[in-house]
């Protein structure tokens, strides 16, 4: 999922301070799971903003709405009738949702309420870690299911580097060396021979190096 973290309250206030009528829109998908922008976080932020503006002596109408997704036309259409009645929209979706909202309601100020961090997994409640960088050319088949692109600080494809010490990375003693994990896993799978294979230069054109990406599937298009 996409992992996000709510922006500091002061930053949010600074963005929406001129609005007299504000709509806070949450998203029921990834940001709900990482507790950054779901229905509950919308309620908490709305309550905090209502108290903040009341304390400033300002009467600001703050409404709450949470959509199934903000990265699909059909769900964004659900606020078509009301979007224009607000001075600003504060979206707690990831950067995708915020942009799609802004594209759809282009005459409206759409502000981001979260910082979108990475593609990751829930290690435990309250702990999320990166697992994928969406490089567009997956090599997990030869690395024992552990991604050196997202989990190695240097993104090296034939590791480990000299900075690997006792299974930890030189950037931080708490960060696992991805290549140590790969070696351990390949050994456990009895596929250590895969480690001997030299991975050739990766085609990074499918990564961000090739510019904004697009997937078009003629077979599923309507």
């Amino acid at each position: 999922m996409i992992v996000a973290k709510q922006k500091p309250f002061e930053e949010i206030v600074d963005m929406v301070k001129d609005a007299d009528k504000l709509l806070i829109v949450g998203c029921n998908e990834c940001v709900t799971v990482c507790e950054a922008g779901g229905k509950k976080e919308v309620g908490i932020l709305a309550s905090a903003l209502r108290m903040y503006f009341a304390n400033q002596g300002r009467e600001v109408q703050i409404d709450e709405r949470t959509l199934e997704r903000q990265c699909d036309h059909e769900y964004l259409e659900e606020i078509r009738d009301i979007a224009d009645t607000y001075d600003a929209i504060l979206s707690l979706a990831c950067g995708v949702g915020v942009q799609f909202m802004a594209e759809k309601y282009h005459s409206q100020f759409v502000y981001p309420g979260v910082n979108t961090c990475f593609l990751g997994a829930t290690e435990e409640r309250g702990v999320w870690t990166e697992r994928c960088q969406a490089c567009g050319s997956c090599i997990l088949a030869v690395t024992g299911g552990i991604c050196p692109v997202s989990r190695c600080a240097k993104r090296i494809l034939n590791g480990p580097c000299g900075g690997s010490t006792k299974g930890k990375c030189e950037i931080n003693k708490e960060v696992d060396c991805a290549w140590q994990l790969i070696v351990d896993r390949l050994k456990a799978l009895d596929r250590f021979s895969d480690y001997e294979k030299i991975t050739p230069l990766k085609d990074w054109s499918t990564d961000r190096a090739g510019g904004p990406r697009k997937v078009v599937r003629e077979d599923v298009k309507l």
Binding site: F9, E10, I44, A48, L49, M51, Y52, N55, Q56
Partner: peptide, 8 residues
């Protein structure tokens, strides 16, 4: 923490 941030 929130009440501190909003000034209550």
């Amino acid at each position: 923490a929130i009440l501190d941030a909003v000034g209550v």
